[in-house]
């Protein structure tokens, strides 16, 4: 199996404050991999390291066999990695449609995603097309931020805590959409704190603790083994 994304022993810091201590992970084509761990263990920082937003101080990130460590974020995006950040980061003063238009204009890759296609995935967005992003609900913003990233035609989606702060019903709808994306062949690296969302979509998991990988294995083994789950996540 040759990995699509390979992260080897990365160390990442914010200035003086060191956060990641040698994270290694792999994501194979069409796989859905989840980074599990409590708040502050380094899930977001791992994604930011891959994306080039906070480049690692050592270690390497390899994409389709090519080293991309330290690339500027726009080059990483154009190489096919799409980032959906945890705090959604909608351009609040732009309308839904304007948010999508910006994403479409700056996308550097051809592919099947265009605005009608993301409207088909999230029909609600079409109804809300003229509403400023700042006036969307949390769930609507989450749809918009995923749609926006899809317009860049990524092969790998970094999905950072999509269920955070959303009502259970909304989370369920979102889960369906993510499963749909997975069925379409999109590779996904997900970050989650809880097991509900993650174990429903993930094939494999890495459990992080204090900037290190504490456990890695199949999602099924974690799903079936309540004791292991309890030990790893103290749930």
């Amino acid at each position: 199996m040759s990995a699509l994304l390979e992260v080897r022993d990365i160390h990442t810091a914010y200035g003086q404050s060191r956060v990641l201590f040698g994270i290694s992970l792999e994501v194979a084509p069409q796989e859905c991999v989840c980074l599990l761990g409590r708040n502050g263990v380094g899930k977001t920082t791992t994604m930011r390291s891959i994306m080039g937003l906070t480049p690692p101080s050592s270690g390497r990130v390899t994409w389709k066999g090519k080293e991309i460590t330290g690339w500027a974020p726009h080059r990483v995006a154009r190489a096919g990695i799409g980032f959906v950040p945890e705090d959604r980061r909608i351009f609040a003063e732009l309308t839904t449609w304007e948010n999508l238009d910006v994403a479409r204009q700056v996308a550097g890759r051809p592919g099947g995603w265009d605005i009608p296609a993301v409207y088909r995935l999230f029909p609600k967005l079409e109804e809300l097309r003229d509403r400023p992003g700042g006036f969307l609900s949390g769930g609507e913003q989450q749809m918009l931020t995923i749609a926006r990233t899809l317009l860049g035609n990524p092969e790998l989606l970094l999905l950072d805590e999509p269920s955070e702060g959303l009502a259970p019903l909304v989370v369920e709808q979102l889960l369906e959409r993510v499963l749909e994306l997975k069925q379409k062949g999109l590779t996904i690296l997900l970050a989650e704190q809880g097991v509900e969302f993650s174990l429903a979509v993930a094939d494999r998991v890495y459990v992080l603790e204090k900037g290190e990988v504490r456990y890695s294995g199949s999602a099924a083994s974690l799903r079936d083994d309540a004791a292991l789950r309890h030990q790893l996540l103290a749930l």
């Binding site: 500027a72 726009h74 351009f91 910006v102 700056v106 317009l151 860049g152």
Partner: peptide, 16 residues
């Protein structure tokens, strides 16, 4: 306008 609001997000979407 997007660059004025969130430079990091815009670059993650592929903009230089």
């Amino acid at each position: 306008r997007a660059a004025a609001q969130d430079r990091e997000m815009l670059s993650s979407l592929g903009a230089n």
